[in-house]
Amino acid sequence: MTNATPTTTGRARTGLLAGRFRRPAGDTLLGYLLVAPLILWLAGTILYPLLSAIRLSFLDVGIIGTGGQFVGLENYSKVLGSDNFWEAFGRSLVWVVANAVLQTLAAFITALILKQRFRGQGLARVWVILSWIVPTVVVVIIWRWLLGTSGGIVNYLLVTLGITPQPVGFFGTGPTARTSVIFINSWRWFPLMAVILLAGMQSIPEELYEAASVDGASAWQRFWHITMPGLQAVLFVMGLVGMLWSINVFDIIWLLTRGGPSAATTTLPVFIYDTAFFKYRLSRSAAASVVLGLVLLAFAVLYTRVMAPRAEEEQG
């Protein structure tokens, strides 16, 4: 690995040495001062609401805005004992894994295509990201329009080309709705991932590939032994952030299916929203979201322990 990314580690070393030799005492203080505004901002907007939510989860508030009594762990035992919660949990797992696989695959393919030299490369690199820069609501309109049965082009093509005998109700059955929503969400996000991967790939020196070619390495070997190690740091963060983002996706699912049909697309965030605002069990919903938050936190800690690239640790 050290061989594969000499510049990165090399740069890190110089930096580290430089830091060690010339780290005036004031730097540590300055460092904290510089990070402080952001940390305070996040604390105000995440930590405080988080504490309120935890408090709420020990009460028995029903409708938002009404009062409640302290009930201890009752909400947690109700949530953890509810089939609906665990079903939503399972759907969230499927959702996150399917999205991760699909997006990673699409993003890698896209990045590898865009890495080639061709005329119009600059334009293609900019506009491939189009699906990410439009609001979720637009994404929803586009796909409801494309996949509908009244005037939808996809169904028209399917039937005309004889692929299916009849129009498909993409949001009409559990499996098709799940698949459609996963595809739409991936369509929305893979370009951003692709562009970031592309940036990562660009950081790998071309000489490495040339040397490997001279040694007779196949394209696959080059990808596996040069590209992948070179992308380790990028993949680490994208993996973590991407999964956290994707498990918390709510709006696209809600706007497309409202969690249906028959709860087939009710992932945990949808379940939480539904419990709070349609079942009028605000505290129970808070308990469910605290559980989700804890699971994600555990995941994040575990992930950073296990997956952290060595270079990152060195600098820590």
Partner: peptide, 17 residues
């Protein structure tokens, strides 16, 4: 890491507070 981990908390969870 603390900064990144803020993404662990669902915005749904934060909505009401």
């Amino acid at each position: 890491k603390i900064i990144l981990v803020t993404y662990a908390f669902p915005s749904i969870l934060l909505l009401v507070p």
